[in-house]
Nucleic acid binder design. Sequence first.
DNA 1: AAATTCAGTTGATGTAGGTCAACTTTATTT
DNA 2: AAATAAAGTTGACCTACATCAACTGAATTT
Lengths: 193, 193
Amino acid sequence: MTEYEKLIAHFEKYVSLSKDEKERLISSFNLIKVKKRQFIVQPNFVAKHRYFVLKGAFRTYVVSNEGEEHTIQFAIEDWWISDYNSYIFQQPATMFVVALENSTVLQIDYTSEQKLKSSNHTFETIFRMMAERSTAFMQRRIITNLTKSAEERYNEFIEKYPSITNRVPQYTLASYLGFTTEFLSRLRSRLRK
Amino acid sequence: MTEYEKLIAHFEKYVSLSKDEKERLISSFNLIKVKKRQFIVQPNFVAKHRYFVLKGAFRTYVVSNEGEEHTIQFAIEDWWISDYNSYIFQQPATMFVVALENSTVLQIDYTSEQKLKSSNHTFETIFRMMAERSTAFMQRRIITNLTKSAEERYNEFIEKYPSITNRVPQYTLASYLGFTTEFLSRLRSRLRK
DNA sequence: AAATTCAGTTGATGTAGGTCAACTTTATTT
DNA sequence: AAATAAAGTTGACCTACATCAACTGAATTT
């Protein structure tokens, strides 16, 4: 499967596409390579793109007033990533999006995405469904954070996303789950026994 | 302004509508009255509707394994409410949606909404924008929960939603913010001084 | 208007998870 | 391969918020 075919396959999980639609999609996305530790979104700059990960891993994080990093999202193959608040409203970002590995992504810029959506009902539908799914996903995360203990959240995560667990630095996972690296370290050693 | 005009005005914040579109919208929504303490969504039943609040107040909550209620969302005039995870995927709900006051809502059922969206690009756009906004909203909540203390979250909430603060029972607010009623009570008495 | 239920307060005490600092291990760079 | 930087571990101690229980006040219900 070529790089672009992966993207098409992803969209066709939502709705099937005509030959012409596929071509229009392909021409709207650019393939780029991102080195480990490179930033693709930074605070105060508008996130101009939405990224589809073909290979590699990313994380989105914010830095609190106290200077702590809090991971908001991970993305590996077949996931989207950006600072959506910035991208959707085309306002300055508040987050960092950084590559955790040498990666390859397909990027679309805001204007091209708007054109896709406004010119074609099917594309509009796909992006609507994507947005609905992320709403549902985020809501599930809010619920987990409100109702589960740190240990439960960790167990749930490793069960749901084993492929992410072993791939990202421990401190990023701890900060995603809402506690400290030290605590995760202790938790893991406790669970090992 | 009639009840239906409020709904139209709400949609026109996103995109302006033709006379015909307005009529189609109106005929897709039903006006219903909901008494205080009445449930409009309950766990294990599929949420068949999405609700637009014309008058009154609602809250969505889940009950954890330990039996504690956790408020997921509030809705007052001009807000939407449902168990979206249930509504969007038409799967059994995990949440309760209950009226906090005698209320009036406009409801649309899942099938009618699908028809609106599939038959008209503009409607699709509106629902896409609505979904994007809720994603952004939820993400902001996740960030607040990860980065701010209980006191900061409370202060932020009362500043952002003063109209909700004085209208809902204190324990629902505490459970929305992620702590106990007792703690909120102490917090308030501390802040009063 | 009395009775009952529901919501909010306050005190005493407990604990999940945090902080800080020193150390070890693993990656990355030269 | 050595030097350096980044990530993870462990111990001692701490604190924000929870729990439980008893009480007060406000709203509903009869």
